[in-house]
Design a protein around this nucleic acid. Structure first.
Length: 537
RNA sequence: GCCGCUGUAGCUCAGCCCGGUAGAGCGCUGGCCUCGUAAGCCAGUGGUCGCGGGUCCGAACCCCGCCGGCGGCUCCA
């Protein structure tokens, strides 16, 4: 079964409709049938919940004919084929308004038992690549009841991946002229009152009183960067001024909204702010868009898998018509000059300015919004930002907020799922594992390890007294990209046997070639195992 | 935050319906095997059954509250 379920959607919808009809005939009140990513759903108006066994029993009452009067929420038409094999996956309850309760029954429908079985085992496989499961299995991070929901602790291996991601982003940022800053986590409420977060965002902020001050933990980094901008007078010659920061922010999301690393209460953004003149906007955005696309492609998200949305002025907004017009066309022109297709989301911009959002499609066909480029007229106004122009007059700069990963935490989760835990070598916590076949090879194994270490490659040694098979399996399970096997043969010839992913193995590689090819793969930050490919040819 | 479901060893789970104070596999520790390619064999270790209260002679099991997790709603990086 492929990773895309699109071909089943018409059949599921048909199944959902037939199931809704069976519900109706059994005295329930189905009101809507729709499609989820991996299933159909039927919303039933009901004051009580419906149990799994009740829902399953109704499957027997499904008849291949007839219609039912419900709202349909799907982008496809139901198939003319009639499914015969159903499975109820999940039942949940929600309230569209306080006086109404809808029970949502999720299920799938297929025309053969085999299809259904295949699909269920696929679903099971998919659940194994859930980043929450992988994170635990690979010993990357954990959550604890004692620390609090939505607050993650990274283990040594998780932190290696985060550091790699941040180092990479440091290079990207500096190539665009950003200067990295560090700003504290706690600020007087005064700052949040000026920025407007206090009024707009207060319920999501952590605010506390201490001594005579009221203080708040930052939910965003921009006000801090603004203070740095304001620390001295700025000339038009300096603009654009660009600050970047791996800013650790806290947003007290509602408990029900938390979801592994994809939705946490404390996370790190690869944040950046640009202070510039309006006529520098287009140029800057162009740079950002092309860099962003470059970065995403480094992780295998090619142009075809990236969608850009341009959000325009909403009804409620600040700033002049002229400013909006200018900013929006700057964004648009940047995209056009890069020949980059995009979609417009009318009136979906922030109240303070238009924005571009980047959405990627992962290898499971799911979409994630990652990068964002937002123009802001509001904060420069609120903080009365200025620069001295050529004519000596003080003028107000425009600000751009931008993040490419978005959140390091979230990006890590998406990568984990996208690569099913088998991260590219440069991101792998252990890049090479040396396995000596028998203990007499110990000395050579140590020498091999040293050679990798000298090149800064993360290598370890598994000389435990387990069988070769077991140690190889263990390495695969941990997602180690390269296994170097050494036995008597290799030791006598200064060679190694190299094992990559997918059971690919090459014997008799000179040690130096293995080291240098793997080093090359890592420093190029290749997504695929190019060292293996090169050594094989 | 709201609604539903759920919580047993480090992990995955059985036992709960029909109350008599816990069991498997993996892991971990030790031993055997000195081994050439995705789980070798044997033994041992491991749990205030999420927390608190109630019912009962007796609670993992029944009831209530709280906390965490999951699935939705809403929201978002």
């Amino acid at each position: 079964m492929g990773m895309s379920n699109n071909s089943y959607r018409p059949l599921w919808l048909k199944g959902g409709l037939l199931y809704a009809k069976a519900l109706k005939e059994s005295g329930y009140s189905p009101v809507e049938v729709g499609l989820g990513e991996r299933d159909f759903y039927v919303d039933v108006e009901s004051e009580t919940s419906i149990t799994m066994s009740e829902a399953e029993k109704l499957i027997e009452k499904v008849r291949p004919e007839g219609n039912v009067d419900v709202r349909v929420n799907a982008e496809v038409s139901p198939s003319t084929e009639v499914p015969s094999h159903f499975k109820i996956l999940n039942i949940s309850v929600h309230h569209p308004d306080p006086n109404r309760q809808l029970v949502r029954i999720r299920g799938v429908a297929f025309s053969s038992e085999e299809q259904l079985k295949d699909y269920l085992s696929w679903l099971e496989k998919v659940s194994e690549i859930d980043h929450r499961i992988l994170g635990e299995k690979l010993d990357l991070f954990s959550f604890h009841e004692e620390s609090g929901p939505g607050l993650v602790l990274y283990h040594p291996k998780g932190q290696i991946i985060r550091n790699e991601l941040m180092n990479f982003m440091r290079e990207v940022n500096s190539s665009m002229g950003y200067n990295e800053v560090y700003t504290t986590h706690v600020y007087r409420s005064e700052l949040w009152k000026i920025s407007g977060h206090y009024d707009l965002y207060k319920d999501k902020m952590l605010i506390f009183n201490h001594e005579d001050d009221e203080l708040g933990i930052k939910p965003m980094n921009c006000p801090a960067h603004i203070l740095i901008y304001k620390s001295k007078s700025r000339s038009y010659k300096e603009l654009p001024i660009k600050f970047s920061e791996f800013g650790h922010v806290y947003r007290w999301e509602n408990k029900g909204e938390l979801y592994g690393l994809l939705r946490v209460r404390g996370f790190v953004q690869d944040d950046g702010h640009v202070f510039l003149m309006e006529d520098q906007l287009e140029q800057e955005v162009k740079l950002l868009v092309s860099k962003t696309l470059d970065v995403l492609s480094m992780f295998g998200f090619s142009k075809d898998n990236v969608k850009i949305y341009l959000s325009t002025r909403p009804d409620e907004s600040i700033g002049t018509d002229e400013q909006w017009e200018k900013a929006t066309s700057s964004l648009e022109n940047a995209l056009k000059s890069l020949k980059q297709p995009y979609e417009v989301k009318e009136k979906d911009g922030a109240f303070y300015g238009p924005k571009l959002d980047f959405e990627i499609k992962d290898s499971l066909g799911r979409s994630w919004q990652l990068s964002t480029i937002q123009v802001d007229f509001n904060l420069p106004e609120r903080f009365k930002l200025e620069y001295v122009d050529r004519d000596g007059e003080k003028r107000r700069p425009v600000m751009v907020h931008r993040a490419i990963f978005g959140s390091i935490d979230r990006f890590l989760a998406i990568l984990l799922e996208n690569f099913r835990g088998k991260m590219p070598t440069w991101l792998s916590p252990v890049q090479v594992r040396v396995i000596p076949i028998i203990s007499e090879i110990q000395d050579y194994a140590m020498k091999v390890m040293q050679e990798f270490l000298k090149q800064g490659i993360r290598v370890d040694l598994d000389d435990s007294s387990e069988t070769l098979s077991k140690r190889i399996k263990g390495s695969y399970d941990e997602g180690v990209p390269y296994i170097v096997i050494v036995g008597k043969r290799e030791a006598s010839e200064s060679k190694v046997t190299l094992r990559g992913r997918n059971n690919v193995e090459i014997r008799g590689i000179p040690l130096e070639s293995a080291v240098s090819e793997i080093k090359g793969e890592i420093s190029r930050r290749d997504v695929n195992q190019t060292a293996l490919e090169r050594l094989r040819s």
